[in-house]
Amino acid sequence: MSLARKFSTVFVLLSLYFLKTSSRHVMPYVPDVLHPPLPDNYEIFNTTDISEGDVDPEMTPGLFQGDMALTNDLYNYWRVGIKWDAFPEKLWKNGIVPYTISPLYEPSDQVTILKAIKTINFMTCIKFVPWNEKTKDYLLIWPIKYPKGCWSFVGRFGGSQIVSLQPPDRSGPNCLGSEGRAIHELMHALGVFHEQSRWDRDKFVKIHEDNIIPRFKSNFDKQSLENTTYSFEYDYDSIMHYGKNFFSKSKGKPTITPKIGSHKIGQRRAMSKSDCLKLNDLYGCLDNVKTRRKYYNICNFMGL
């Protein structure tokens, strides 16, 4: 058995143990508000012109760039991740993220979510911890029906904050075929944006505007140099990168393709080395010599 599979097996066993022990404590109630109030200028885009059979579950919510519930106060200030000096309230304090998982999920889907959580806990100094039913701000991981699909707010919004992960159904695995999509949405919740939005992306990818459904062209906007960090190189392997057919008018018409080599884009298997380093950098895990060495080694060993 490979080392990677051994790690995966350990994650599953730990997750099953967690489910067994935590099941003794029944959630006292489901919060009345399942997501923070949406701002007045917020709009859920109409996705009726996307073919339902072909659509990626990160596109179906119809939110900003598909899967991000993003307010205008953040739009002009993002980079690889939220600028904490501009929006300190969006940071999860001390890198601690309380969470609770909906009992509506099947046990196997809960295990998939827990594998995503335990992966981030292992690869970074960020710590997801079970909600103690007292902390005001926490993630509520829930299979929201509207808007359905995979989506999250970006950074700490406040209160009971939804991360929506649509479970498998007759149409396919949706957000929980593996832990990759859960990791993607959890990274949004931690404050990380999509990779192809970087200011320097045109050096690395070509955007095929003629192939994009017109109403979704703004999803491919890039950010200015002033609002972008380039501490890390452009990452085709990022779990935060669009797939080549996102928001395409039809099959066989890619909307985004690499300019260099034959890189595949849009993987949702695991964090890349760069994804891992970004998270650690955003949350100060690389600020001192001891932790920097530790997490650089983990990222290089565990990242794609």
Rank of each mutant, 00 (worst) to 15 (best):
G149E: 02
N280W: 10
E43Y: 12
Y77C: 07
T124L: 03
G66H: 08
F7R: 12
N211R: 08
C125W: 03
T228D: 15
K20C: 05
K145L: 12
I239C: 07
F204G: 13
D287P: 05
D67K: 03
E195N: 06
H194A: 05
F232E: 15
C299F: 14
P88G: 07
I256A: 07
G149P: 06
H208F: 06
Y296I: 03
S102Q: 07
S238L: 07
V289Q: 11
D67T: 06
S250E: 14
I213R: 12
A270S: 14
V97E: 12
L13A: 14
L139A: 08
T48L: 14
D210R: 11
L13G: 07
P214Y: 04
M59R: 04
N121S: 02
F45P: 02
Y146E: 12
G53E: 11
W78I: 01
R268C: 05
I44M: 09
F232P: 06
N72Q: 11
K136A: 07
S224P: 09
S23H: 10
Q110I: 00
K273C: 14
L70V: 15
H194Q: 13
S274N: 12
W84V: 01
S272P: 03
Y146I: 07
H184Q: 07
M123F: 02
S250H: 11
R269E: 15
P28K: 02
Q161I: 00
L282K: 04
G177R: 01
L304N: 09
E179Q: 00
D202F: 11
K222S: 15
R181E: 09
V55R: 15
N174M: 14
Y138V: 03
S8W: 02
V192G: 09
F193V: 00
G284V: 00
D109I: 01
R198L: 15
N94P: 06
Y105W: 00
D32R: 03
L140I: 04
W151Q: 03
S197I: 01
V205I: 12
V55W: 01
M59S: 11
W199V: 08
R181M: 09
K278T: 04
T47N: 13
Q223L: 12
T291S: 14
C125L: 04
E52K: 12
F7L: 15
H184M: 01
S197F: 07
E58L: 13
M302Y: 11
P98F: 09
T291A: 04
W78A: 00
R201Q: 13
D32V: 10
Y99T: 01
E43A: 08
A116T: 00
L286Y: 14
R198W: 04
T21R: 12
Y146K: 12
N174Y: 05
L140C: 08
G243F: 05
K93P: 06
P167C: 04
N288C: 13
I183Y: 01
H25W: 03
Y138A: 06
N94H: 09
R215M: 10
N297E: 08
F64W: 10
S248I: 12
S218M: 13
Q161S: 02
T112I: 02
S15F: 08
C299P: 13
T119C: 10
W142S: 00
R5Y: 04
E106N: 03
S274G: 08
I183C: 02
T229Q: 13
L140G: 06
W151N: 04
Q196I: 01
N121G: 06
